[in-house]
Design a protein around this nucleic acid. Structure first.
Lengths: 366, 366
DNA sequence: GTGAAAGCGCTAACAC
DNA sequence: GTGTTAGCGCTTTCAC
């Protein structure tokens, strides 16, 4: 079999046109507007393309001309480990990917781990050939936020930051949802509660990367308002029940490993041995805490109540008492907002529903 | 605070140059080669850019000029559900993403579910602004294979198809790995084995989308050779043990749901009640089969041996006897091959190591 | 149904 | 250090 002729210089639309002695428009039409030329001519063109090894119109050149990249970017400013170990984040990506697929668009993962310099990271954001960006759960002071905004492309924020001028957002009522769950836990009779949360800020005010008790001031630090809102939800419920929210033991986890929740639980229980309920701001933390408690021989819910947040599959399977939020739907909505921007041109805030799931991990205090 | 002036027409490098009465090269240099101009001038340029709302060099135009897109594409021709519910696939993506991040490149997910027409799908592949493609575990007759190849970009294949001319590949010795596991199972004394596998071809030769026994001819169908190789690995072990490989009950699962393995197990046990060991070509199938057996009151490994393949986290946690393969490393290698192509220009085949993990789910037959 | 001309926004040679 | 000149490969009026 003869090898197809591989010209030095790659074939372009223009070279094809020259070869066939037709105009470039005609070639372009053969690919983009089949109805604009005779089927016969089109066939001839496509055959010649094949013969000359012309791969079809260059997507980049087309993008430049049409001002459409055909893809949306997803900024990932946390470490990839974080992302790929949080089922809720993955569900979100799945939903977003689904929406992109439906719209025939690509999804460009722009990931900039903490090991990259801000310069490198900015380069990646600036280099992304996309028509818009999704920002997922970024801290208010994320240095890359300014960079995406600089691009002057449509942005859809998911969860946080809460107020990015001109940007649509999809999220949930974190505070209300957590309050609902806390009311349930308080209703069971718990008074000493440990609250296990993800990192509250990009910085880490302790010498070691281990979980640590967060003082009220740290809790009020504005950087990851989703975590703060969930904490506030618990405080709301406590205040409503006549309890002092200051009694809450908040433990913040530095990283996001499968064992982080357990480590945080240990710190919480050491800080306040009278705790009878561990409320976590993420299912992954709660599941890990449960593993830790089991290893310690502490029975759940008999000796310790544990709750989560997210409603990921594993949590529901294991009967975790938690708040279920529609992570995949968030992704779909975010994609939709980018692919079909609201006619008004005005930013939209979509708040999705959540549901308290009464599982088998919460009971009356021992 | 005054709003920044938002000109009708978006600022471009040229308009900035005109405004500042310098050449476009100088502006370009201010962004790309800071050492090529005086810091003072650069500062002035950047300030003017800020003032005029110039977002920096357009990535698409730059790509056209430099012939570099700064991203690699990942073709996803299975349904997204499939991808996001298989931890092994996710580990792979995580590894690939890691490698992209390291190289400062983007990762473009080009997903074309089974619900898209081939035309739509081809459009997506043809429209991807990337410097190369990763093809992950595609069937030999995947219609999009021809489309990616048409792009004439570097391609790295992961797992399958096995022979894509001119393309590097990273994979494992599926047959040998599975043979090793089967030898262990046979060594325990099992003689009647059920083999649960993913779909063997893109087509589905049965009326209903339920698991079904695959006849030898179907097993030999060439489309997903990874599955076939793993099956052959078991056959090898059986033949070496003096058993007739034809006695193997192969059940093929149509879809990839959390319950698929259980459904397949049911079909296998119905087809051959004497089965004492269920070997699965993926951990997700095995875990689901275990759930099914538990629900049926069949004790593992006392009454039934179950094995998997992949070595995903949940499987290891649950003590599944399986073959561990380095999924994330596959992703990293694939990315590396794309970002740092071998000097020779010749395609490379990388075969990574696997390991039989003797867990707690295999024992002597009852 | 087909073609000519204009230009998307940028960077790379090369000259000054 | 800075400017001039040429495109990268394509699509899009608009005229024929």
């Amino acid at each position: 079999m003869p090898r197809s002729p591989t010209p030095r210089r790659r074939a372009t639309l223009a070279s094809l046109a020259a070869e066939l002695k037709v105009s470039r428009t005609t070639i372009s039409n053969a690919y983009n507007r089949p109805d604009q030329l005779s089927p016969e001519l089109r066939r001839r063109i496509l055959a010649a393309a094949e013969r000359m090894g012309y791969p079809g119109p260059d997507p980049v050149a087309r993008s430049l001309r049409t001002r459409k990249a055909g893809a949306v970017g997803l900024m990932i400013t946390e470490s990839l480990n974080y992302w790929f170990s949080d089922p809720a984040a993955l569900d979100f990506v799945a939903g977003l990917a689904e929406s992109c697929e439906e719209a025939g668009q690509g999804l460009l993962l722009v990931s900039i781990g903490p090991n990259r310099s801000v310069e490198e990271g900015s380069g990646a954001v600036l280099a992304a050939g996309v028509d818009g960006f999704v920002v997922y759960s970024a801290s208010d002071d994320d240095p890359y936020l300014a960079v995406v905004r600089q691009r002057q492309l449509p942005i859809v924020v998911v969860d946080q930051p809460k107020d990015l001028p001109g940007c649509s957002r999809v999220g949930i009522d974190d505070r209300g949802a957590m309050r609902g769950l806390a009311e349930y836990v308080l209703g069971l009779g718990h008074r000493e509660i440990g609250l296990l949360t993800m990192r509250l800020g990009r910085d880490w005010p302790h010498p070691k990367p281990r979980p640590a008790v967060a003082d009220p001031q740290r809790v009020e630090s504005p950087h990851f308002h989703v975590q703060r809102e969930r904490i506030n939800g618990v405080c709301d419920a406590m205040a409503a029940a006549g309890l002092d929210p200051a009694a809450l033991t908040v433990v913040e986890s530095y990283d996001h490993l499968p064992t982080s929740g357990g480590a945080a639980a240990e710190v919480a229980l050491a800080a306040n041995p009278r705790i009878t309920a561990l409320m976590c701001t993420a299912d992954v933390l709660a599941l890990s805490a449960m593993d830790y408690l089991r290893a310690k021989g502490i029975y759940v819910p008999g000796q310790m109540t544990v709750t989560g947040f997210d409603g990921v599959r594993e949590a529901l399977q294991r009967g975790l008492t938690t708040v279920a939020q529609p992570s995949a739907e968030k992704g779909r909505r975010a994609g939709h907002l980018l692919h079909h921007p609201p006619g008004s041109g005005l930013p939209v805030i979509e708040v999705l529903d959540t549901e308290v799931v009464r599982g088998r991990t919460a009971g009356p205090p021992a």
